[in-house]
Write a protein that binds this DNA or RNA. Structure first.
Lengths: 189, 189, 189, 189
DNA sequence: TATGAATGAGCATTCATTCAT
DNA sequence: GATGAATGAATGCTCATTCAT
């Protein structure tokens, strides 16, 4: 039971293994242990499961970040932790996210993308606001807006690394440091 | 004649109108004014035209930027112009680019993505290097690497705006200013 | 309640609107205000409702005729009234009848068709017999058998008119007169 | 080659064997010896072949009649021959015709039905006109219009017989005679 | 009786690709 | 190089029917 969850989980699994195009509904339902028709009781089309998957992935991202940021540490360290977390999520899920993003971009679901990312933006916004209150971030920074820039920056930086798998290990650390430095200058006093 | 070009142009046109999934080879060749079989003399599969399209789009982007940046102006102004240019390109082509990106991500062509973007990165890298030589950008900035961060940042900022078409006009300008300020602090002396 | 009736009425409604093929059981039960499973308590399959519908339609036909034939008038006038009535029924229900006929022809229910028409044939047979007793119809006419010919003739004449909606108004009257004259000669003294 | 013909013939064959509903396109193309996709080069849907089949059947009917009517004989005999021919066609094809009629009624092709029957009506019309010229048929008869009544009458008479397979042999002959007598009275001097 | 969630067999249709000309 | 008729594999989706409650 809770068939909806089972479908989403199965879809994540199968999409990861075979890619979206080559995944058949029959693959998903087989793994979910339900009948083919049952899928359509929960999602009206193959692609309609995408936003639900995206939601799950974003949830995982936020959880990962929350788990790794030490809210007692100073801002620079916290920022390092945030970068680490986002890079870590990217390493594990960027392929899946790209897949889902592509799937949503291809169909009519693109408009749901913002809603899906909203919780992530809010977390970052709160995070920055706290630092601003503490006097670490310049008063002139619009935390609401910059939160999106920060997420966009870190994610695109991570993607640039993990998209092309060249001498990773080192690359990753250098990139992280560059982003860290870039951000500190960009927003701090 | 120059059938290859005609195919690419037709593909851009049709993809834009109907989306990648719903575009049939027959649509492309009809618009290109060639026979169905001829397509396969130039591209081995439906998706194989994607990198060629991406190349064209990136070329357009660079041309747009080159045309709008006044190399005599001071860095801050130039940066404004760069942001304007990238936002402008995003406004016109982000949908197409997302589509092409999705198309390449879906198939085996993702590895070509970096090569396609390379000229763009190089231009930005040179642009920053000049400013660094002029003493405007901090010595500690790795222009090579930061060029990618900058492009990633501006593009994601633009995408956040154009993806969801809310009260654009104002939004766009505010977002541009925020990015400009963000960047100046991030990299300048 | 009286769910059986409700199902039949709903089926008539929906079949008329969407055609048999495109009508789903779910459409019928929705309109009937009952659950999907309930349908199968009254009819063993989708098509099994067809004979019931046919019965209803034939009942309506007979009622229409009875209501319009003045049994005091002379035979020629009565015949005109019969023709009018059958044409009127055809105008309103021929589409539905064709649909039901098609539905029954498509499945195993065709054999029930005669039983459904039987009351109609009997009415006509009695009608002719009376006229024969009165000396209006030739003695040599086998009323039993000719009743079917007469119904077949009038119905096919009506169908030829209403199937193709060309300049109706006039057409209808001419056709009716032709049928009337045809019949009078065919069977009267 | 002449794939269109091959498709029509195969469709007639398979529809007759399995009925329209249970016939798959794959059955038709298999018998026609062509690829599945090729079917759709000639007919846009499964049902779209119906009018083409109807045409073939009507052609056969006309051929049958022409072959059996002795244009040297007197009208009464000729009429007997016409009735024989139409009954014979009905015996062989009424099931198929009902099927096709149902198929066309079910879909959007019903409007083509008249065009398909037109040649049949014309033949009958000419036939009656000749008899009228020869003084056998009353001057007051509108041959054009009555031709359709006559065809409708004979066909419905035949259908009534062959639809319900009761003690045929005798039935058929009685019915034929009744129709013959009915018609002679209806239209002759 | 009544329900309606669940089933899963079933197939028309599409369209990228091929190849004889 | 160019053509475009022919191919046929491939699958998302539907919906009549069932059955546990």
């Amino acid at each position: 039971m809770n068939k909806r969850e089972r479908i989403i989980q199965a879809a994540v699994e199968v999409f990861r293994e075979k890619g979206v195009e080559k995944t058949k509904i029959s693959d998903i339902v087989k793994l979910a242990g339900i009948a083919q028709g049952t899928y359509y009781l929960y999602f009206p089309s193959k692609m309609a499961v995408m936003p639900a998957i995206a939601e799950v992935l974003v949830e995982k991202s936020i959880k990962e970040i929350r788990a790794n940021v030490d809210r007692e540490a100073n801002f620079s360290i916290q920022l390092t932790q945030v970068i680490d977390a986002i890079f870590s999520v990217a390493e594990n899920y960027h392929e899946m996210l790209a897949m889902v993003y592509a799937g949503m971009a291809t169909t009519e679901h693109m408009n749901e993308w913002e809603a899906v990312y909203e919780p992530f933006y809010r977390w970052m916004s709160d995070f920055l606001k706290d630092a601003q209150t503490a006097g670490t971030i310049r008063e002139s920074v619009n935390t609401e807006r910059v939160s999106k820039l920060v997420i966009g920056l870190i994610e695109s930086a991570a993607e640039q690394i993990y998209l092309y798998d060249s001498n990773r290990e080192q690359e990753v650390n250098i990139q992280k440091q560059e982003v860290h430095s870039f951000l500190l200058h960009a927003i701090c006093v």
